[in-house]
Write a protein that binds this DNA or RNA. Structure first.
Lengths: 256, 256
DNA sequence: ATCATAGTCGTCTCTCTGACGATAAGCACA
DNA sequence: TGTGCTTATCGTCAGAGAGACGACTATGAT
């Protein structure tokens, strides 16, 4: 009874701060990398952290994530179900909600609930954060999440946990969706797509079986007509991402 | 620069209310049902809504969800990675975070961000909500999410959307995990587990192939020794959920 | 010319699935 | 005491798909 009376009572509610944090992933050189920014003020001054910030009173959560992403990287993002869809092929990244973190002591100053978003982007030029180049970098996730924290300082707040969740989401989601193409430029080859899978999963895949799988899945890849030799070797056919978003049967991660 | 300075500034932040909403699913009779409560006050007075409530200043999000669940149903929940694990076989339900909803106008009175949790429970006695029996019910999701809203009033707030997301999560997650056992009592037969899949997916499965699949997956089912005839017909072997949480290869939803 | 590199096509085997026949073991009746 | 109905369980067979790997192609580098 008391429960039913107090539910959604607008007159007295505990105030929270709500932020968004971004797990921005890309494939650089042959490894999966995450975007980090350096904190310039306490707490965790000097630590690396995920980019993010407060949600404004009049904006939605995905909107806030998009705005922060644009501020940090200049990227435009498409939300997953094509809300404010940027045309395919524009310099757009995939953006989806990851999870929400609200441990009472996760920020020592006050009660902060953070909604984390996962962004998958093609390889980008060196990041800039508010004009200060030294305060942002791409860090290989292998070094951040490895068993030994040999990288030096861990991430600020619970951002190490958030990053781990984001990486795990990306690793499992490319298994049964065509999301790996979000790491590729508009036109790409089968080999480039395979190297994305190899970097994200950290395994080596058989080029012949991979080629058979992705070209044999209807709607996954659309031939764009051209060829390229930018990887060396025999010229490879160029493709763009097809309309299919689900992969059935899925691409299987080896050594399970 | 301004961005970097104002990030996490504790002195001035826009205040939000944070709530948890629960998508509690069970299988009753032969259909997937969700727990709804009737709202006794505006807005949406008289509408059916998902159970939920405010997060208290000193409790975590999952903790708030557990508390609300216990208040509404008397259930104890285990969070997914075994935080405050209740022993298997206790009257515990599966609880996991679903998603967070924060559209600026989702509550007409103020800015509310709601973290939705998904609960999968075995069939329960008739619900009680704060002692008022008439204010809570199990509703078949087919009637709530059907193409024609023939059920009468839709759900309050954006709870129809949240419910749809929760049902979709449950439908896809039983494909590649052993989560379907969360809908079953401690001991259950292969046929009962099959009827869970059939109710959640809304399809008919071949009993022979299903039996081969689940008994052939190591760690999925543990024979408990007994048999039962509570479904009529030939006595069936009783099982308990095995330790395996991931199903590889997955159980395939037909007619994809 | 030769080699190294990467892409593409085929083949073989093994596993798993979907379709379906056959048998087993209870209960409800006449 | 059967007969029929229900559900459980075991088996068989064909086809799809994956992993392993051979073979060939087309470019650039030396």
């Amino acid at each position: 009874m008391i429960v039913a009376m107090s539910r959604y009572d607008p007159s007295a509610f505990p105030p929270f701060a709500v932020t968004v944090d971004l797990v921005v992933l890309t494939v650089r050189d042959h490894s999966l990398c995450a975007l980090l920014v350096r904190r310039g003020e306490p707490p965790f001054q000097g630590y690396w952290a995920l980019p993010g910030g407060f949600v404004r009173p009049d904006e939605g959560l995905a909107e806030a994530a998009s705005r922060e992403l644009a501020e940090e990287t200049g990227l435009r993002a498409h939300s997953a179900p094509g809300h404010d869809a940027v045309g395919p092929g524009a310099a757009g990244a995939h953006l989806e909600q990851l999870a929400t973190y609200g441990h009472p002591q996760r920020d020592p100053r006050m009660r902060v609930v953070s909604v984390a978003y996962l962004v998958l982007a093609p390889d980008l030029p060196t990041p800039r954060a508010g004009g200060d180049a030294s305060s942002a970098r791409w860090a290989p996730v292998g070094e951040l999440l490895g068993d030994n924290p040999a990288d030096g300082v861990p991430l600020a707040f619970d951002h190490g946990l958030i990053l781990a969740d984001g990486v795990e989401r990306a690793r499992s989601k490319i298994e049964y969706s065509s999301l790996a193409t979000a790491f590729c430029p508009t036109e790409f080859t089968v080999g480039e797509l395979r190297r994305v899978y190899e970097a994200v999963w950290g395994v080596a895949l058989d080029p012949r079986n991979f080629h058979r799988k992705v070209t044999g899945t209807p709607g996954f890849l659309l031939p764009s007509g051209g060829t390229t030799t930018r990887q060396g070797g025999r010229p490879a056919q160029l493709f763009t991402a097809g309309g299919a978003t689900v992969l059935n049967p899925p691409m299987l991660r080896p050594e399970s």
